[in-house]
Simulated scan of single mutants.
Amino acid sequence: MVFAPDTEVALRTVVNLINTAANGREGLASIADLDSFLATEGFSGSRSRDEAELASVHQLRVELAAVWTADEDAAVGTVNRLLRDASALPQLMKHDGWDWHLHATAPGAPLADRMSTEAAMALADVIRSKEMERLRMCESEDCDAAVLDLSRNRSKRYCDTGNCANRAHVAAYRARQAAAG
């Protein structure tokens, strides 16, 4: 394990949120799409379920995508701003089958504040651990998806949004076969 379990879950949620806009598609086009995303990610708490909430999640997605490719100083600035804007106050919580983990906003806080705080807390762990290189972009030439590398040897190169790794491996195999033939 590289990070605490709740940190890894939050980082995976960030990747999945960023990747809802990868490769020219919009995976959060409607409130129903956001409902589905939050259910898949196991994100609980109050919701307004309106267009303003959806727009605030879209804005958060843009900010988090920028952190994914930022240098450490820029990432720190964004993380600190996200925590400050949400009036974060870390507390240990236990709910929904989860053992003790950190929350830094109240369950009734606006969705974007709760999401940004969860992301910022996880990204703070990444920064403090000097592990920013684990946040990268897919190496496939035709993909712009985010990648979270939690492998022991830091070897993950391709996203989980499609078949990027498979296509790269098949192309490499074919190139080796052509060179040998």
Rank of each mutant, 00 (worst) to 15 (best):
F3V: 01
P5I: 08
P5C: 07
P5F: 08
T7H: 11
T13D: 08
N16T: 08
A22H: 09
G24C: 08
L28C: 05
F37N: 00
T40D: 12
T40K: 11
T40Q: 12
G42K: 01
S46E: 15
R47Y: 01
R47S: 08
S48Y: 07
R49P: 00
R49D: 03
D50E: 06
E53W: 02
A55E: 14
A55P: 02
S56L: 11
Q59Y: 13
R61A: 08
A65K: 11
W68Q: 00
T69P: 00
T69F: 02
A70P: 03
A75K: 07
V76A: 12
G77N: 10
L82H: 02
L82R: 07
L83W: 14
R84P: 02
A86Y: 02
A88D: 10
L89A: 12
Q91L: 01
Q91S: 10
L92C: 03
M93H: 10
K94A: 15
H95M: 10
H95D: 14
H95N: 14
G97I: 00
W100L: 09
L102Y: 00
H103W: 02
A104I: 00
A109L: 04
E118G: 12
E118T: 04
A119S: 09
A119Y: 06
A120E: 01
V126S: 07
K130M: 08
E133K: 13
R134C: 05
M137A: 12
C138M: 00
E139K: 07
D144C: 10
A146M: 00
D149K: 04
S151A: 06
K156F: 08
Y158E: 07
D160I: 09
G162M: 02
N163K: 05
R167C: 10
H169L: 11
H169M: 14
V170N: 05
R174L: 05
A175L: 06
G181N: 12
G181I: 01
